[in-house]
Design a binder for these strands. Structure first.
Length: 639
RNA sequence: GCUAGUGUGGCUCAACGGUAGAGCAGCUGACUUGUAAUCAGCAGGUUGGGGGUUCGAUUCCCUUCACUAGCUCCA
């Protein structure tokens, strides 16, 4: 039974009760947060449970338990304080930066002479457990801003001082104290350290102070914690399981692609990976043809002048590769847009021609930082499933909505869950404020009219325009931007694109850049992890493995293979001199959707014996019926 | 690029201041096989590259390249 009421114990010992649904304002009015001990402990459903009041979106007081996201945050945030306390006990003089709760855990950024090693983490864990055992009360107190700064100066915490200095004048600054340890913190926290029973510190990594590479690099310790040891073990087990889906691992096992030392960030696609890639491209082409896109292809190397015109020289040079041809300076394209601009400019357009949807599977090269490379997810050369849509101003919203629907349609075919982000004008950008506002509002309106929720990323847009991003998750929950829709008033201006309006005058079209897969490479990475290599029949590089039981059935098997190939079924014959169990095992490990086994029985009856990767033995079948089943699974997924 | 870590045959891993070992894969042969591994034999590595310390380095040190996690950046 979940408690539906909140008890607040005040410092004077009296108890106030509030019922769920009360607003935070009402609580605040009734009690001063200074007086409240803040936390009301208890047990819910027999699990840890420290209740807390927090302000949720509806400004209602809600009751948290560990299973709630808010409850977990509370728990993790307190854990991060315990981590900081343990580190300061073991390594006096360590300066504290920030230590928030994150998905599945928490971290603390520390500035210390000492370089933390894996062994140190064990020691720190032990100390954290001690702090938990000490069952320290966690108390909140507030100081006026100036006193807070003085206090943190006295504590020799320069990062905290800097944080407080950024808070507005006259603000009350809250602190949390547990034992000898005091930390600047908005809270809320658990009432004491006791519930943090199972602690695991996971890794140390560098992190710049305030995320700025010009600042000092601090040491970040990542950890996780749970109210019960068993929950921690389950969590660690889940992480291990998830790692088995890693596309780099499966890509190697299934021989789909590789990345060699000779080409860091430049992936090689193997025969089976190419089959998958071609399926995706065919699928993509059909979907685009159906929606009024025309396909083009533009060169990879273009002269430097073009990149000055496009603005890439000023805004993207750091990420570009350059080369010389004869005496001229050339660049390898990092984006496809300038090429499309030139295709647009080859002729005159009428207002009647719009919208013009120009698609290109364009190979781009970008110099990504070496430390940022990651399998197929972040590479230095990749194929964007790009399209540039040229429009009349009044078509903007409908086109954006059309692309949003298109993305949703494609992702749903693969069964992907995604979230949307809207990124606004970055610092290093071009164009007028008015254009940016217009463009940003167009994207925002389209999202809102479609009733889609999104996360706002201030300052994260492209240098030529704001963007809507579609993010997909990998096996361990990291998200990767795949689809994006970017509205651009700059490029058409820079390239002086025009069309002839109904008035006979020249006008400027508007343009959007968009990708749906994002890049074929990244999309394949996501795809591998999503299916853990068990591709559905329509995507499987090999759909059927033909397994004759012995040499003498080879001819019969070969005949079946020929029949299947006639129907474009991707079939492989395994006529090696091996036992059937061995061949089945290998086909299963290759994650082939269907295995067809033939021996004496089948040859005589003119049938086949079918085994499914996912459903096991399916028994004897007619060849024709089986082939139809396979084809059905493919056609169902093709538009 | 930054911080930390890793780098042994095609793959997964072992060992160690005295010039490397296993399993799988490969090759050869036998077996002719009924739904997740048949048996035997053979071959395969100047321990990522370069330099140094040492009588001797794969092991210690420096440097470089690549990879991993995170930061930064981004499709």
């Amino acid at each position: 039974m979940i408690m539906e009421q909140i008890k607040v114990t005040l410092k004077d010992g009296s108890v106030k009760e509030f019922h769920k649904g009360v607003t935070i304002g009402e609580v605040a009015e009734a009690i001063s947060s200074r007086l409240a001990k803040e936390a009301i402990g208890g047990e819910v459903n027999g699990i840890v449970v420290d209740l807390k009041y927090v302000l949720n979106e509806d400004a209602e007081v809600s009751i948290l338990k560990f299973e709630d996201e808010g409850g977990k945050d509370l728990f993790r945030h307190t854990s991060s304080h315990i981590l900081a306390q343990a580190v300061q006990r073991l390594y006096p003089g360590t300066k504290l930066a920030i230590g928030p709760a994150i998905d599945n855990g928490y971290y603390y950024d520390l500035d210390s002479e000492h370089r933390f090693t894996q062994e140190d983490l064990m020691k720190i864990e032990k100390e954290m457990e001690k702090i938990v055992q000490e069952n320290l009360e966690i108390d909140r107190f507030e100081l006026p801003r100036e006193e807070a700064i003085a206090f943190m100066k006295k504590q020799e915490e320069p990062y905290k001082v800097e944080l407080i200095e950024d808070l507005p004048e006259g603000a009350k600054i809250s602190f949390y104290k547990q034992g000898e340890f005091v930390d600047l913190c908005a809270g809320p926290h658990l009432p004491n350290t006791k519930p943090v029973k199972a602690i695991k510190l996971l890794s140390v990594a560098g992190a710049y102070w305030r995320g700025d590479e010009k600042n000092k690099m601090l040491q970040r310790i990542y950890g996780t914690s749970f109210p019960k040891q068993k929950m921690l073990e389950e969590h660690l087990h889940r992480i291990e399981e998830a790692k088995k889906r890693d596309h780099r691992k499966i890509g190697k096992e299934l021989d789909l692609f590789s990345i060699q030392e000779e080409g860091p960030g430049f992936p090689f696609f193997h025969p089976k990976g190419m089959v998958l890639r071609n399926i995706l491209e065919d699928f993509w082409r059909k979907a685009h043809q159906k929606r009024g896109y025309e396909e083009i292809k533009t060169p990879i190397i273009l002269n430097e002048e073009l990149w000055h015109t496009s603005g890439h020289w000023d805004h993207y040079k750091e990420n570009m590769y350059f080369t010389k041809i004869d005496e001229g300076d050339f660049a390898v394209k990092p984006m496809n847009c300038p090429g499309s601009m030139l295709v647009y400019k080859r002729k005159m357009y009428s207002y009647r021609d719009f919208p013009i949807r120009m698609a290109e599977l364009g190979l781009v090269h970008r110099h990504e930082l070496s430390g940022a490379l990651h399998g197929l997810m972040r590479v230095r050369c990749f194929t964007q499933d790009d399209a540039h849509i040229f429009m009349l101003p009044h078509q903007i919203k409908d086109e954006i909505k059309g692309v949003i629907d298109f993305v949703d349609y494609i992702y749903s075919i693969f069964g992907f869950k995604y979230h949307i982000e809207l990124s606004t004008r970055p610092e290093n950008s071009m164009g007028s404020d008015e254009d940016w506002e217009l463009a940003t509002n167009a994207l925002k309106d389209a999202l809102e009219e479609k009733n889609l929720s999104y996360k706002l990323n201030e300052g994260d847009g492209a240098f030529y325009g704001p963007k809507i991003d579609f993010h997909l998750e990998d096996c361990i929950g990291r998200t990767w931007q795949c689809g994006t829709i970017q509205l651009d008033f700059q490029m058409p201006q820079r390239f002086d694109l025009t069309y002839i309006g109904s008035d006979g005058e020249k006008h400027r079209p508007v343009m959007i850049h968009r990708v749906i897969f994002g890049s074929i490479e990244r999309f394949i990475g996501i795809l591998i992890e999503h299916f853990a290599g068990k591709f559905p029949t329509w995507l499987a590089p090999v759909q059927v493995k033909l397994l004759p039981i012995a040499d003498k059935y080879r001819d019969y098997a070969q005949k079946l293979v020929t029949e299947m190939e006639k129907r474009d079924i991707r079939v492989e014959l395994d006529d090696r001199n091996e036992k059937i169990g061995f061949k089945i095992r290998e086909a299963q490990l290759e994650k082939v959707p269907y295995m067809v086994i033939v021996g004496e029985k089948e040859m005589e009856a003119g049938t086949i014996s079918v085994r499914s990767r996912d459903r096991g033995e399916l028994g004897a079948q007619e060849l024709l019926g089986f082939m139809e089943t396979v084809q059905q699974e493919v056609w169902n997924k093709t538009l």
